[in-house]
C-alpha cells in the first residue's frame, strides 16, 4: 500500500505576527513547525502503514526550510519525502499548490491508495488544498475527520459536520483530511531522528514535474495585510458579588445591548 501525507510548514501557533513595511507578513525570527493538523495526517499515515504495511511518502510545497519539516516527518516514521521547491511557487495560493501536488501525485508519485492531509493550515486557515486536490485527482474525500478505519480495501471515516458528525464509506483511492482528535501524535524518537538523515528526500522543481510557471499562476492575490484593531481592556467591575453581577447585567442590557 502506498500512503501519502501532504504537509505544510507553518509558523508556530504561538508566534507573534508582524506586518513588514511592504504590507507582507514577516517570518523573521519565527519558529517554523509542521502544521499541527498535518501532524495528525502523518501520524495516521504511519499508523495505517504499521497496521497494513506499505510505505509512507510525505510531500510538501515550500522553500528550502521546508526540508526541516519533512525531516521531522521522516523522524516520526515516514519512509521518504518529496519537496516541490520552485521560486515560482513562492507565495503560491491554494490553487497553485494543489496544481503542483496533483501533478506530482498523478504522474511521478502515482499509484497511491490513500492521501492524508490536515483539515487546514493554521497560518492562512483556508483549508482549500484537501478539497481542490481531491477534485483534481478525482478522489472520494472525507473532510475534518476524527476517526478512520481501513479494512478489506474499504475506508470508513467519521467527520465533523455543523452540530454533529457523519460516518462515510469511501472508495479507494481516497483523500482524508485530519481534524484534531483523529489520533495522538507521537514524538519522533531520538533514534528516529538519526535514521531520518539517511532516508531519501527528493527535491523537485516545476520543470521536473513538467509544469510551467503559467500552470501554477495564483488566482488569489494579496493586496495588503494589516493587523486587526487591538481590543482594549474595558471596565473592571468591582465590589460585592451581588452588586457586580447586577452591574454586569445592567451594562449588557443598556450599554452593550446584547441580552
Amino acid at each position: 500500500m502506498k500512503i501519502v501525507a501532504c504537509i505544510k510548514q507553518t509558523f508556530d501557533t504561538e508566534a507573534k505576527i508582524v506586518v513588514g513595511g511592504d504590507g507582507q507578513i514577516s517570518d523573521e525570527g519565527v519558529n517554523l513547525i509542521v502544521n499541527p493538523y498535518d501532524e495528525y495526517a502523518v501520524e495516521e499515515a504511519i499508523r495505517t502503514k504499521e497496521k497494513d504495511g506499505g510505505e509512507v511518502v510525505v510531500v510538501t510545497v515550500g522553500g528550502d526550510k521546508a526540508q526541516e519539516a519533512l525531516r521531522y516527518c521522516l523522524a516520526m516514521g515516514a519512509d521518504r519525502a518529496v519537496l516541490i521547491n520552485d521560486p515560482a511557487l513562492a507565495g503560491a495560493d491554494s490553487r497553485a499548490v494543489s496544481v503542483a501536488l496533483a501533478k506530482l501525485l498523478s504522474e511521478k508519485e502515482a499509484g497511491f491508495d490513500i492521501i492524508f492531509t490536515g483539515k487546514e493550515s493554521v497560518d492562512d486557515g483556508v483549508g482549500q488544498v484537501p478539497s481542490r486536490l481531491a477534485e483534481k485527482l478525482d478522489l472520494a474525500q472525507a473532510n475534518v475527520v476524527t476517526a478512520f478505519e481501513l479494512s478489506d480495501g474499504k475506508a470508513t471515516a467519521t467527520r465533523e459536520i455543523d452540530g454533529g458528525s457523519e460516518t462515510l464509506e469511501l472508495v479507494l483511492p481516497a483523500l482524508i483530511s485530519a481534524q484534531k482528535g483523529l489520533n495522538e501524535v507521537r514524538y519522533p524518537s531520538l533514534p528516529g531522528i538519526m535514521k531520518a538523515k539517511r532516508k531519501p528526500l527528493e527535491v523537485l522543481a516545476l520543470g521536473d514535474l513538467g509544469l510551467s510557471v503559467d500552470d501554477v499562476a495564483s488566482k488569489v492575490e494579496l493586496v495588503a495585510a494589516e493587523l486587526p484593531p487591538a481590543r482594549k481592556a474595558g471596565q473592571r467591575l468591582t465590589g460585592e458579588v451581588d452588586e457586580v453581577v447586577a452591574k454586569l447585567v445592567q451594562l449588557l442590557q443598556d450599554e452593550a445591548k446584547v441580552i
Binding site: 526541516e68 523522524a75 519522533p188 531520538l190 531522528i193 538519526m194 538523515k197
Partner: peptide, 9 residues
C-alpha cells in the same frame, strides 16, 4: 539541524 530537532523534540 539534528541538534535543533533533538532539542525541539
Amino acid at each position: 539541524n539534528d541538534e535543533l530537532m533533538i532539542q525541539e523534540v
